[in-house]
Design a protein around this nucleic acid. Structure first.
Length: 474
DNA sequence: TGAAATGTTGGGGCG
DNA sequence: ACGCCCCAACATTTC
């Protein structure tokens, strides 16, 4: 029997893998991963590549992995020829270039006379399956999630199939040639303290979340100083675990404890649906990463502010909660969700810097950088997205800090030069009495920056910018 | 998955 | 005892 070729993409796992399950039924399985270096605005960033390297390494320890660089259709044609594979299987993607890429791959498989099969697995629901009464895609999240919930449960997760790994001889590149990980300087040296890429790490994280974090999740997820979030996003992005597995695992945990879906579990399932919502949106609106979904935002009066962008990226804005988030991002490749909203709002509304600048920075620095979630979320904060926050919803970084990091634990962890300040002043050090500052060893403008822009001024400026939009609109 | 301004209410101090 | 004022505390509106 000829082997079956499995083209691996963002599905670096063995469990609940529809394409693998199908391939396993056809013959011994060839695992192929293709690195496509073709230039594009959204090539994975350095942090994504760090994760990819770890994930592929973990995968290759369990299974022989064929590694190739090049265009997927060219590489697959080559591998089909060299292995005599009798079928081709892969998991569908939803990025703007995915459909065309998959069509080209299908064409070469057809030309080779090899049956080509495409499967879901990256999302809970296929974009084609969720439509409103008019047969249109949803543009507002709440009815979208209602439709998903009322549709019934996603399919049951699939076990790891029994299969024979193919053991033939074929050229494979070495991961180290791909230059995926940094060396000098090794800015990722600290990442292994926070992350364990690979399917095993993903499943452990899901268990830990279900056992230790889920209770109270609906409220504690908002407090960045607390271990209150799932931290599953990078695992989901690389497909080390599927959203279907997460869905059923959390639903089952809730059923064991409460006999039903409690508020905490429901909140998490809703977060998974946000992920689907973003991908459906990108599927229908391919230029979502570049252009405002609401066209009137194309005229927004942004400011050129390279110094402000630099300060934001380095975590030197003078607003402790923003700086803590940006430094957590730099140190760990991750930022707490609540702080992402605050930091993004600050860039857009306090500094009037285009949301695309922040989107690119996050794309390069997040371990969970994900085209749809990143684009949809930045547009959500900017007010230009589908179902977006109203533009006038401007976060006050001081109040947000006081509300969600009341004791300042999060700020102390990531902005150590402020660690000795009492909680009362930690989110507004520039207002602290001189004696408090000096006994905490803080010198505003020296050991920690003064605010790059005053909140009251920035708020009024942003509101005026909104008014100008409305004017242009009318 | 806001914040600030403005409006309303009610208790307490005080003449 | 009463009216007046002040001002939290809460509610509503506006951006």
């Amino acid at each position: 029997m000829p082997p079956a070729l499995l083209w691996l993409r963002h599905d670096l796992r063995l469990a609940d893998h529809p394409a693998l399950t199908a391939a396993a039924a056809q013959g011994s399985v060839i695992f192929l991963y293709i690195q496509d270096d073709a230039s594009s605005d959204w090539r994975p960033g350095n942090t994504s590549n760090w994760w990819l390297y770890q994930s592929l390494t973990a995968f290759a320890k369990r299974m022989q992995l064929v590694l190739r660089r090049g265009r997927p259709d060219t590489v697959i044609a080559d591998v089909l020829r060299q292995t005599g594979a009798g079928s081709l299987h892969f998991t569908r993607g939803y990025a703007p270039q995915s459909a065309a890429e998959e069509t080209r791959v299908k064409a070469i498989a057809d030309a080779a006379g090899v049956p080509c099969h495409r499967y879901g697995g990256y999302l809970l629901h296929e974009p084609e399956a969720i439509r409103n009464g008019q047969g249109e895609p949803y543009k507002v999240f709440t009815p979208f999630s209602r439709a998903c919930f009322s549709r019934g449960e996603p399919r049951a997760p699939k076990p790891v199939p029994t299969f024979t790994p193919w053991t033939g001889d074929i050229d494979s590149e070495s991961l180290s040639e791909w230059n995926l990980v940094p060396s000098d300087p090794d800015w990722a040296a600290g990442f292994p303290d926070y992350w364990h890429p690979g399917e095993t790490g993903a499943q452990q994280q899901l268990s830990r979340f279900a056992d230790e974090v889920l209770t109270g999740y609906s409220t504690s997820r908002d407090f960045p100083g607390v271990n209150g979030t799932s931290r599953l996003s990078p695992h989901l992005h690389f497909g080390e675990i599927s959203p279907v597995q997460c869905w059923h695992s959390i639903r089952a945990a809730a059923a064991r404890r409460h006999g039903a879906l409690d508020a905490d579990a429901e909140k998490f399932l809703t977060e998974l649906l946000w992920r689907d919502f973003s991908w459906h949106l990108l599927h229908h609106v391919p230029d979502l990463p570049e252009k405002p979904f609401r066209p009137e935002f194309a005229d927004f009066p942004w400011e050129a502010n390279p110094a402000g962008l630099k300060a934001w990226q380095k975590g030197l804005t003078g607003y402790p909660i923003v700086d803590a988030g940006m430094r957590e991002l730099w140190a760990t490749g991750f930022m707490h969700n609540r702080v992402r909203m605050i930091a993004a709002s600050f860039l857009i509304k306090h500094l009037l810097i285009p949301w695309q600048e922040g989107e690119h920075w996050f794309w390069d620095t997040l371990v969970d950088a994900d085209l749809a979630n990143n684009a949809a979320s930045w547009q959500w904060v900017a007010g230009s997205g589908a179902d977006a926050a109203p533009y006038f919803r401007i976060f006050n970084p001081v109040l947000q800090g006081e509300k969600f990091d009341a004791q300042g634990e999060y700020v102390r962890r990531w902005v150590p030069e402020l660690a000795k300040l009492p909680a009362q002043w930690i989110h507004k050090p520039w207002e602290a009495p001189a004696s408090t500052l000096s006994s905490a060893g803080v010198v505003i403008g020296k050991s920690y920056p003064a605010p790059v822009v005053a909140h009251g001024f920035a708020r009024n400026r942003a509101l005026a910018a909104l008014k100008s939009l409305k004017g242009a609109d009318a």
